[in-house]
Amino acid sequence: MSPRGVATPNVRERLFAAAERVVERDGPGALTSRAVTTEAGCAKGLLHTHFAGLDAFVAELCLDRFARTAARARALSRLAGQDTVARNLDTVVLALFDAAGPALSGLAMSRAAATQQIREALKGGAPGFNAMEEAITAYLAAEQRLGRVAETVDPSTAALAIVGTAHHLLMTGRPGADDPRPTMTRLVTLLVEGPGLPGRPPAA
């Protein structure tokens, strides 16, 4: 534990990672300021030093994870023409469900103040699902120009279906529910790599 008066390096990420471990291990109901700081091995008041309460902490944690996934989506353009289209998309979409993603989303939805802060931040331009949708649309259009996505696929509609389904599964997931990632993988494959389409590797 960091002693009083000694700065804790990378404090935000340290607290965020600790919160994810608490939620993944013990469920959303176990997330308290003390549980987070205990898990992080730092002073009990550290969370409130850096955040305006637990609701603000939860909101900023969710926004940080959304921003990370949006950044990964924007990086998809560099993967055009490599591997398969579905696997490239999976690297982005499935990241939303890593660690405690669904549980954290459910936690945010159960805290009205956190939900409101997230909505206001997204409305103000914070990267989130809209940014992911735009990046996936641009990526699919690039793959289409390379002949790896069929001309019959509308990139913007496919991106909306992928991101919208991911959002739905995140918002409706419950502890102990089936893993949503296989569903996402099947949907991505169906939308962009139907039987015989160029984005699919040839059969052995």
Rank of each mutant, 00 (worst) to 15 (best):
R200A: 14
L46K: 10
S156M: 05
L169Y: 05
V85I: 12
C62Y: 04
G194E: 09
A59R: 09
V6E: 11
P180A: 05
G164N: 11
A70P: 02
C62T: 04
V163Y: 06
H168I: 02
G81P: 00
M171D: 00
Y139R: 09
P198G: 15
H50L: 12
L54D: 01
T91N: 03
V93L: 13
G81A: 07
G45W: 09
E13M: 13
G53M: 04
V192I: 07
G125C: 08
G147D: 03
P3R: 15
E20L: 15
A204V: 02
T172W: 00
L31D: 03
K123L: 15
M109W: 02
A7M: 08
N130V: 07
A43S: 11
R145S: 14
V22S: 08
A52E: 12
H167N: 11
D154S: 13
V36F: 08
A100F: 08
G199K: 09
A138P: 02
A18N: 01
A86N: 01
A158K: 02
L79G: 00
F57I: 09
A30Q: 06
D64V: 02
G45S: 14
P175G: 04
A56W: 00
P155I: 13
R72D: 11
P198W: 08
R12C: 05
N10V: 04
L15N: 08
G81W: 05
L160V: 00
T8W: 05
G194N: 03
D98A: 15
R186M: 09
D98H: 12
A59Q: 08
N88K: 04
L170T: 03
P201E: 06
V149F: 10
T189K: 12
A158C: 05
G41R: 03
P201V: 11
P201Y: 08
C42M: 07
R174K: 15
L197D: 06
R145G: 08
V11K: 04
G196K: 09
L89V: 11
E120M: 11
M109S: 09
F57P: 04
Q82C: 00
R200S: 13
E60W: 05
A203S: 14
D178A: 15
L191K: 04
V23M: 04
A177T: 01
M171S: 11
I162W: 06
L61P: 00
L140R: 06
H168W: 04
L46T: 11
A95Y: 07
G147W: 12
A112T: 12
A67W: 04
A135T: 03
V188Y: 04
A158H: 01
F57V: 07
T49M: 13
F16R: 13
L15S: 08
H168T: 13
L187R: 07
C62H: 05
E134V: 15
A203Y: 02
